[in-house]
Write a protein that binds this DNA or RNA. Sequence first.
RNA 1: UGCCUUAUAGUAUAAUGGUAGUACGACAGAUUCUGGAUCUGUUUGUCUUGGUUCGAAUCCAGGUAAGGCAACCA
Length: 558
Amino acid sequence: MNEIKKEEEKSLNFLEEIVEEDLEAGRTRTVLTRFPPEPNGYLHIGHSKSICLNFGLAQKYGGKTNLRFDDTNPVTEDTEYVESIKEDIKWLGYEWANEFYASDYFEQLYQFAITLIKKGLAYVDDSTSEQIAQQKGTPTEPGKESPYRNRSVEENLQLFNDMREGKYKDGEKVLRARVDMSSPNMHMRDPILYRIKHAHHHRTGDSWVIYPMYDFAHGQSDSIEHITHSICTLEFVPHRPLYDWLIKQLEIFPSHQYEFARLNLSYTVMSKRKLLQLVNEKHVTAWDDPRMPTISGLRRRGYTPESIRMFAEKIGVQKRDNLIEVGLLEFCIREHLNKIAQRRMVVFDPVKVVLTNYPEGEEILKSEDNPEDPDTTYRDIPFSRELYIEREDFMENPPKKFFRLSPGQKVRLKSAYIIQCDEVIKDEAGNIQELHCSYLPGTKSGGEHANMKVQATIHWVSIPHAITAEVRLYDRLFRVENPASEEGDFKDYINPDSLQVLPTVYAEPALKTAKFDERYQFLRKGYFTLDKDSSEEKMIFNRTVTLRDNWAKEQKKA
RNA sequence: UGCCUUAUAGUAUAAUGGUAGUACGACAGAUUCUGGAUCUGUUUGUCUUGGUUCGAAUCCAGGUAAGGCAACCA
């Protein structure tokens, strides 16, 4: 309810404005968008901006969104990618109205080409790719017309048919639009519409040897589907005149293209090519490595769809280039995980505590699974004479603002007792072996002296009851904010410490039943989720994100 | 030295000729059985020069800067 109200008060982004104007002016009665991935790689967080935009816009105005695979280049595309893309979109929480493929329209597109030829607006060109590049000129000089530009309609029809029949080899001929070789817009200088590729297509098999180019597939597919608002990224702005020209000459449904600035995220890269390189050259383990900005990587890392949708909402949409701080993404996931994560206690770097005045045996204590949840459940935690606490939670000679355990000082053990440190036991080298402490019996959580004030509460595990697990701590993949804009190879800026593995950490027994779809907060440590590498013998947890840490900040200042 | 797009706090994003606001961050404090969460407060901005106007972030003109465009990729 609250959220809906907020939404109503919120100002519109420029795409929503366009849609509302179109609706008001009666230019359209419905909103139909599409998400048009090429199945040649995995989706990343940048795509999720586009997905949320396309699906979100349609949803908001009671419209629908098609999923359309832009599969016009058989040599790079594969069904493996089709499947991963569908999975990622569903996971993000969106449902497409129709699953289409540009390749569904190959015959229709071929007929469109014939229409153009008949109108004298397309011709078969025998020039080589180098010659065509020459003819195009440069941005500052006009192009030259191809010697094949003025072939007759009949000849073009025949040659184009022969292209389809497979009478020519790859690269021998192309079909070009006949527009304007002196246009200041390079894309209008007789762009290529069809090329010959004797290649196996993931859906049409070997039935075609000519394939349409992006410019002769995308807009036409939009039009065939009656897409009202075709939303793409900024690099397609110069294609728009061609998009409009083709639709006009073909006299087909007038879809319109609108462009927004793609997402850039700090400390990572966002191009399929670069991500593919990271995978191929083994800088990461796979497309779904939890350090990757892919949707599958984020999912494995423990991000939730809700958090990614919140992120997309918060970054907004505009036409100016941007570099979003990864901190905003982290804010979004913390925001969600804080509400849903089950709290557990896990000690990463243990130091042994012996409670000298605590009897042998055990005691079962209760602790809330999530203090943020008013209806929280409680779990049992065994307590005993010998415990582990975090080594960094004890300091022999603490600085002023250190609130945790130190000789003679008291600290609260979460959901248990207040303890006091009496003696520090060291080995010959002076390393701390264990801490001898006494507990204050009346200070048990909920007990009569539970309100006694101490500076800090720390987490702990009972040694005889502890279970072990592996923990994988992730940091940003790159050392610099914008690796793509740095001098030289972006891979030179990879952060060598992006993964830290702790093979053995000690956890309270309740974690034994950890589930893959459950999110956990390891108290004072961060948010974690079970990794798919886990086995019956060994649980492995990925750190999704740390908790905010003001103490660390304080230390940095000092 | 062509064409296109863009320019508002550190980062994003509003204000659609009429009080420059919001979020994240940063800083300070309150509170807390997580140095988490929560709450309160503070800080910082209209690229530049002119013009139109009672009034300009907004309209106009010139500059500047950033990004894009010359794949048989999408």
